[in-house]
Design a protein around this nucleic acid. Structure first.
Lengths: 195, 195
DNA sequence: TGAAAAGGTTGAACAAGTTCAATAAATGAA
DNA sequence: TTCATTTATTGAACTTGTTCAACCTTTTCA
């Protein structure tokens, strides 16, 4: 099985490509090993890649003026990572991307992605469709954040992403939910003792 | 000036099209008048349109099991409105779209949009680019919601969207910020008396 | 293997935000 | 113009979530 097999399967879930298109596109990616705690992107840098995770796990987050971290999303195997804003507009990023496990990621450069847009018409559709799906998911999360308490958001996080839940520390989950880790601990205590 | 002029200008801000592409695409839209308080979409219905607002203002919102409203976004002149999830997947919407002023909107059906995707290759790019921009904006809002207090979010809302602020009631703004309107009133009082 | 670092829990005091109810002000429709 | 409806304000009691500090457990890595 090719190193790019996971990527090929992921693409096929979104659009149908010919074998030529698929291999033409996937060969533009390069594998990178990223060890735990290593940064793939730091705020202030321009994001030069779009990545597809084949192993491990990343967190994409922001650090505010009080040094608090807000996690925008996690990416495990089969997920894409980038700072779209920084990548597409070549402007300094506001985000950090860090490996939280020893990881492997397939990277494509802006030049190669633009080559794909220009020469492989279906790739435009691929990214339109993927961005739409990501956007719908973020809309749901936004609505949940506007209307639900931390208890509810935590319960739904566990239910929706059990595979993330098992691999994440409570600090990470708290930063994703937008609450302090102490308060998450109290929520967990309440859940454990209620029954 | 054509009824579609605003639409043409909006498209040109995102991608460059030939005159043939531009008119081929814009003629697929149909003007609809929507009077204040009229619904363009109700939860449970399938969203059959994608719309471009040429006059007035809409709110796109969710109603939770406690009958509380969360506003996903507002759309005034020059903004797009739809429930992407419902529109693209033809599944029942979870959202409401309501005119909050007497409004005019240019609508395109799914069939016509698919015709455009199939026959006007640049349209695929147009919607990829627009969805990316919308997504970046929502990511920023998500980060703000995770890390900032209601006071800060309100101040930044006014600064970022003064043209919305002037036209909206505090009830609407509170539902957008994810706070009760009473609490927004207290924030406003604090701002007014603090100097 | 052992010391240091990171993660998790708990309590107390506090701050942020909600709920409910009462009242006032602005808007709209006949 | 008027009456009804919607919007805005305020206070009191309450709930949700934060902060800080202390302490304990688990993981890491030299």
């Amino acid at each position: 099985m090719s190193m790019h097999q996971l990527l090929r399967e992921n693409i096929e879930q979104h659009v149908h490509l010919t074998e030529a298109e698929l291999s033409g596109f996937t060969t533009l990616f390069e594998l990178k090993n990223v060890s735990k705690k290593q940064m793939l992107l730091k705020a202030g840098e321009v994001c030069r890649f779009e990545g597809f995770v084949t192993k491990g796990m990343f967190r994409v987050y922001h650090i505010d003026k009080n040094a608090a971290e807000q996690i925008l999303y996690f990416a495990i195997e089969n997920w894409w990572i980038t700072d779209i804003d920084s990548f597409t507009n070549e402007r300094p990023s506001q985000l950090f991307i860090e490996a939280i496990e020893d990881s492997e990621v397939l990277l494509i450069s802006k030049k190669d992605k633009e080559f794909a847009y220009a020469n492989l018409p279906k790739i435009e559709k691929l990214f339109r469709v993927m961005t739409q799906k990501t956007h719908v998911a973020l809309q749901r999360r936004m609505i949940d954040n506007l209307g639900k308490t931390a208890d509810q958001r935590y319960a739904e996080f566990i239910e929706k992403y059990p595979q993330l839940f098992r691999r994440l520390s409570n600090l990470q989950i708290a930063a994703y939910l937008g609450i302090s880790h102490e308060f998450l601990s109290k929520i967990r205590n309440k859940i454990a003792h209620k029954r």
